[in-house]
Amino acid sequence: MILNIEGLEFHYKSREVLNDISFSVEKNEILTILGPNGVGKTTLLKCINRIHHPKSGSILVGDRDIMKMTLPDIAKKVGYVAQSCEKGRLTAYDAILLGRKPHITWSVSEKDIRMVDAVINRLHMQELSMRYIDEMSGGELQKVSIARAIVQEPSLMLLDEPTSSLDLKNQQEILRIVSEVVKGHNVSAVMTMHDINTALRFSDRFLMLKDNRIFAAGGPEVITPENIKQVYDVDVDVEFLKSGPVVIPSQAAFV
């Protein structure tokens, strides 16, 4: 098991944001957190790598308690791709190299360079690597962010809305990369996402949040019209195509 969360609770000042959250993620698994805006999806991700401090509960990555680890140690285990990334005047190569920060004590080692090389090759970013990130498109920048998280050598990757603001082609490409990394290495991923159909295509399991709690958890079978109605307050139909289930807003939703 890569991630195990028990009884997680998080309050922002006096407001309850997450309550009684328990779930686990296995090796080579992609888990997607679904739910409406403001339900606590991003907060949950940020609790996992201690950007936020949970009020109570336990978070184990591998067999180690996140709350007892130093921040650089957490960064060696958990890679985080934030929803938005600042565009500094750095080349993609430098921006990816930055992912080695938890491992770099003073200067860059041969292993750091080898890791960066391998990821650039793997993600076919050779042409991109010497370009400045402040001149990149959203899709290119997202690739750089994911590459940076991969060179951290994490066992768990957290991706906050990795496909928001990307066109269809880039959405597919980014998630294919995530999928390849997860399936090809001993890595797992937890993502937040709004597009249920994209999530269905690339995720193994789902966590549906409602009212700051887990409403449903499991495989694609939890994506039902009833659950979506409960969580999003939207009427949908779930059609089963050759490629898998597809969520379509029902006629009632347009009336």
């Binding site: 940020k46 950007i51 650089p72 985080y80 934030a82 990334c85 600042e86 500094g88 998280a149």
Partner: peptide, 17 residues
């Protein structure tokens, strides 16, 4: 290296330890 990380945004920097 810390300043380079902060340049990438607070959350990314925190994610880098």
């Amino acid at each position: 290296w810390n300043y380079n990380a902060i340049d990438a945004g607070d959350e990314t920097a925190k994610g880098l330890g």
